[in-house]
Computed example of a mutant assay.
Amino acid sequence: MKIEVETQDKARYMGLLLLADEQESMIARYLTRGDLFVMRADGGRVVCVAVVTDEGGGVCELKNLAVAPCFQRRGYGKYMVGYLCRLYACRFGTMMVGTGDSVTTVSFYRSCGFEYSHSVAGFFTDNYDHIIVEDGKVLTDMLYFRKSLC
């Protein structure tokens, strides 16, 4: 596996980014200002993408993490999160991640060492043009998790 920062034509990964964030206009808000990481398998096939932004005050945020469907549940997402935490540890003290109240997603981030920080009530209903359902549950609030990188 090889992970590289993509600086040109970030939008060409939109199809994969949409797996983790269902609305293109929301992705556009952070894609241009964030670092886009692309994990490739031997042979160049894209396995996973992630976007990290600088939120100021020593905090970075993992805005998007998506694993191609044929590579899911094989540890690639967790590997990417670990890589990003190590990479950003020298520049930031804390990494944040926001997600919906989905058992699968919350469990994943907890397994990566993130702890609950706070919630933003109505985030999904206020910012998305459609209802988002994950694990059979309509998402309303954004749950934020944090991990110390020091």
Rank of each mutant, 00 (worst) to 15 (best):
V59K: 03
D54C: 08
G77R: 12
Y30F: 05
G56M: 04
T53M: 01
C90D: 10
F123H: 09
T105N: 15
Y116Q: 12
F123G: 00
V81A: 05
C90T: 14
Y30C: 00
R73Q: 13
H118R: 15
L62Y: 00
Y83D: 10
D54A: 07
C112V: 11
V51S: 02
T140M: 05
G113V: 10
F124Y: 15
E55Q: 13
C85Y: 04
S107P: 02
V97M: 02
Y83R: 08
G75D: 12
V46K: 03
E55S: 07
G136K: 07
P69N: 09
A121Q: 14
G43W: 09
T104A: 13
F71I: 05
F108Y: 06
Y83H: 14
I131H: 07
F123W: 09
A89L: 00
K137L: 03
C85L: 02
C112M: 06
V52I: 14
D141V: 07
V52K: 06
L139W: 10
G44C: 06
N64F: 07
K137E: 05
V67Q: 00
A68F: 11
V52W: 05
I131F: 07
E61S: 11
L65Q: 02
C48L: 05
A121Y: 11
D54G: 08
G82D: 05
V133Q: 12
S107L: 10
M96D: 08
V51E: 01
L139K: 03
C48V: 07
E134Y: 08
R40K: 15
D42H: 07
G75H: 04
S107F: 07
A66F: 13
A121N: 09
F124G: 09
V67C: 03
V51R: 00
M95N: 07
V67T: 02
N64T: 10
M80F: 08
D35C: 04
V46D: 04
V52C: 04
L87C: 04
H118F: 15
K78T: 06
C112K: 01
G44V: 04
E115K: 11
K78V: 05
A66S: 15
D35W: 01
F114A: 03
T32G: 09
V49F: 12
Y109F: 15
R40H: 10
D42Y: 07
Y109M: 09
M80T: 03
C60N: 10
T94H: 02
F123D: 01
A50N: 05
T105E: 08
S111A: 15
T99E: 00
F124A: 00
L31P: 05
T53F: 06
A41D: 09
L84S: 01
V138G: 06
K63T: 04
R74G: 11
V49P: 06
L139P: 12
R40D: 11
V138Q: 13
G44T: 01
C90G: 12
N64Q: 03
D126F: 08
E115F: 10
R73F: 00
M142E: 12
Y88P: 14
G56I: 00
G122V: 08
V103L: 13
A50D: 06
D141Y: 13
T99L: 08
R73E: 00
V133E: 15
M96A: 07
